[in-house]
């Protein structure tokens, strides 16, 4: 018993240090995402330009890129031209959809008018779509296969079209 005490104590210390050491490099703010490989939830929200209802299902059979963003978010603005560029490149093969949430329509319309936009931008007034998709920040981009399966999301802004290319390969097959 007498000799066991220190050994147990040292073992506990070892475990503590190991656990703390392993924690380095992990991001405590990272929110797990489990919808990977699951069917993308359907939605029905309207387009900002013509107020038409848009559903996910109507694009079945084509790969989809879903970008969640808001105008008050700086990185989203920075990412905007990168997405526009990517859309031009993949226009024929994939559907690009922007979903604006946690924002209001006026702001978004003003921003889009000033910065130009091509692919459809949808408006999620009560963030219900964002909640359904397990969004944990802005901007976030989801890649969805032809079969409607989520194949990963990028929870950070794109700074270069190459980053999108790598992801597109996966869903274009």
């Amino acid at each position: 018993m007498k000799r066991l005490g220190p050994i147990i104590a040292l073992a506990v210390i070892g475990l503590l240090i190991f656990v703390l050491f392993k924690a380095f490099g992990t991001d405590p703010h990272e929110v797990p995402f489990l919808l990977n490989g699951k069917a993308a939830p359907n939605f029905k929200i309207k387009r900002l330009d013509n107020d038409q209802e848009v559903t996910l299902d109507q694009f079945k059979g084509r790969p989809i890129v879903l970008n969640f963003w808001a105008t008050w978010c700086g990185p989203c603005k920075a990412e905007h031209p990168v997405l526009e560029y990517a859309w031009k490149k993949y226009e024929k093969d994939a559907v690009f959809l922007g979903i604006v949430f946690e924002d209001n329509e006026q702001n978004t319309k003003r921003f889009l008018a000033e910065n130009g936009w091509t692919f459809p931008q949808l408006f999620d007034p009560k963030s219900t779509v964002a909640v359904d998709y397990g969004v944990s920040g802005v901007p976030e981009t989801y890649f969805i296969t032809r079969e409607g399966i989520i194949q990963g999301k990028v929870a950070a802004p794109f700074s270069h079209p190459m980053q999108i290319d790598a992801r597109m390969k996966g869903i274009l097959q």
Binding site: A70, W72, C73, E102, D103, N104, Q106, N107, K126, S127
Partner: peptide
């Protein structure tokens, strides 16, 4: 007052 540049705070159901 228009909340530009900041996240507008939405009210819940």
């Amino acid at each position: 007052l228009l909340g530009q540049g900041y996240a507008p705070q939405r009210q819940g159901l």
